[in-house]
């Protein structure tokens, strides 16, 4: 039994968890990867392409952290550059053109912070995704499978349904960052983790996610089969939704409304 929020954070960051590509390979068939943002480069931290969910073609996009030390360095530890977000948006627009649903797997400590990322407009890349995803005409389901680090995670999570694995976390800032800014002491990360309300249960009670996915038999066939069934069932509902874009707008529109004082 996991008691504290900070233990959840550590679990979410655990190297032994399945990574983005594990989900793609085990849930879908016939995955064909598409590289590059068609503007500058291909970002290995984000993997995307087409695949079949059962027999149904979908666009899948995943943030990939890598499994070995070498892979992790190659994947930049799952911290995407602006090109990664631009590639994701390119593939999402392509999905819209061909009427394919979009499924995203999110696992990142955050968008990469580096000189090059700033020079090439990290903020602009995320902003554009948020804006464009809000009116895509195909269903989008995003699943947070590990770390959901701030804007870098949200840039793939403006979706009709957002789900979290039971030990995934989703936060506006890392607990360490929060503690060092607020209390000038990164050792207070445990308090920060508690206060930030970043667990799957918290996110659900705040109305930020719809579903918590059990981690029973994580990494095994049963685990992936379960997610495949859930995705298939949910897409059947979403495909019939004639007010998809309006409902997505309302989904985000209502968040935080009750968190303000209007007297």
């Amino acid at each position: 039994m996991i008691d504290t929020a900070y233990e959840r954070v550590k679990l979410a960051r655990d190297n032994k968890r399945p990574t983005g590509l594990d989900y793609i390979k085990n849930i879908f068939k016939d995955f064909i990867e598409f590289h590059g943002d068609r503007r500058f480069a291909d970002d290995p931290a984000i993997v995307g392409g087409v695949a079949r969910l059962n027999n149904y073609p979908v666009t899948v996009i995943a943030i990939e952290k890598g499994n070995t030390a070498k892979e992790r360095a190659y994947r930049n530890f799952g911290a995407p550059q602006p090109e990664g977000y631009r590639k994701a948006l390119r593939l999402m627009k392509q999905a819209e053109k061909f009427g394919r649903p979009i499924i995203c797997f999110i696992d990142t400590s955050g968008a990469y912070c580096g000189v090059g990322a700033e020079e090439r407009g990290q903020g602009q890349a995320i902003a554009e995704n948020l804006m464009e995803m809000s009116t895509l005409s195909v269903p989008i389901i995003s699943i947070l499978v590990g770390e959901g680090g701030s804007g870098g995670a949200l840039a793939l999570a403006v979706a009709d349904r957002v789900w979290m694995l039971q030990n995934a976390v989703y936060s506006v800032i890392s607990p360490e960052g929060c503690a060092s800014i607020l209390w000038k002491d990164s050792a207070k990360a445990e308090t920060a983790a508690e206060s930030l309300k970043l667990t799957a249960e918290d996110a659900k009670s705040l109305g930020v996610i719809e579903r918590i996915l059990s981690e029973n038999e994580i990494g095994k066939k049963e685990f992936y089969d379960r997610i495949r069934v859930l995705l298939t069932e949910e897409l059947k509902i979403l495909i019939k939704d004639i007010d998809l874009i309006q409902n997505r707008y309302d989904r985000f529109r209502k968040i935080g409304v009750s968190a303000v004082n209007k007297d």
Partner: peptide, 16 residues
């Protein structure tokens, strides 16, 4: 950050 995830979601809400 004192409003946690709710703050983060304002990015999506304003963008829409």
């Amino acid at each position: 950050m004192q409003e946690g995830l709710l703050s983060l979601m304002q990015m999506a809400k304003t963008s829409a």
